[in-house]
Design a protein around this nucleic acid. Structure first.
Length: 161
DNA sequence: GCCAACGTTGGC
DNA sequence: GCCAACGTTGGC
């Protein structure tokens, strides 16, 4: 099983939204590297860290799972959608996505500041300077480390960053 | 709102 | 293929 991190702006779609709907097509990705990860590398059941970006407290908010095989992002065909792509066709769709299924929300998010403070995450792609990729792979060690941070930050008496 | 970093576009 | 201009991302 592989592990991933996927960014979402909570004002648009948060971990609570995912918890409510249970499962969601990850529409709107218009970056080839991110698309390639979904199209070529993801498998049903892969673990996903659900990351809140562009918000007051950026960080990992919870866990999801890859819930479908890749298929064409329907919004690329929707004239009038902000994600419409005239260069795409149903015969040759340009943008592929997967469905993401809710697993759990952390009691407290693991904040970006907390991630940056963890030496074992120093080589994580998320923390690289200027990184903007919205779908990125994690090593098993990164995954385990973030989950451990989520557990430790929930212990009573543990200081928060 | 600012700005650094990066991806995309398009002229040549 | 090069590269400047432009647009977007995302933290602060």
């Amino acid at each position: 099983m592989r592990h991933w991190l996927m960014k979402s702006e909570p004002d648009v779609f948060s971990i609570d939204d995912l918890a409510r709907v249970g499962r969601e097509p990850w529409t709107g990705v218009r970056n080839y590297q991110a698309r390639n990860h979904m199209r070529d590398d993801m498998r049903v059941g892969d673990g996903v860290l659900f990351y809140h970006s562009s918000c007051a407290e950026p960080g990992v908010a919870g866990i999801a799972r890859v819930a479908s095989a890749p298929y064409p992002d329907p919004t690329q065909f929707e004239r009038g959608s902000e994600y419409f792509d005239a260069r795409s066709s149903r015969a040759q769709p340009r943008w592929m996505l997967v469905d993401i299924g809710f697993e759990r929300k952390f009691a407290r998010p693991v904040t970006l500041a907390c991630l940056r403070a963890e030496p074992r995450l120093a080589d994580c792609a998320l923390l690289r300077r200027g990184n903007r990729l919205s779908v990125l792979p994690l090593t098993r060690a990164h995954w385990d480390t973030v989950l451990a941070l989520a557990r430790s930050s929930n212990k009573p008496g543990t200081s928060q960053p």
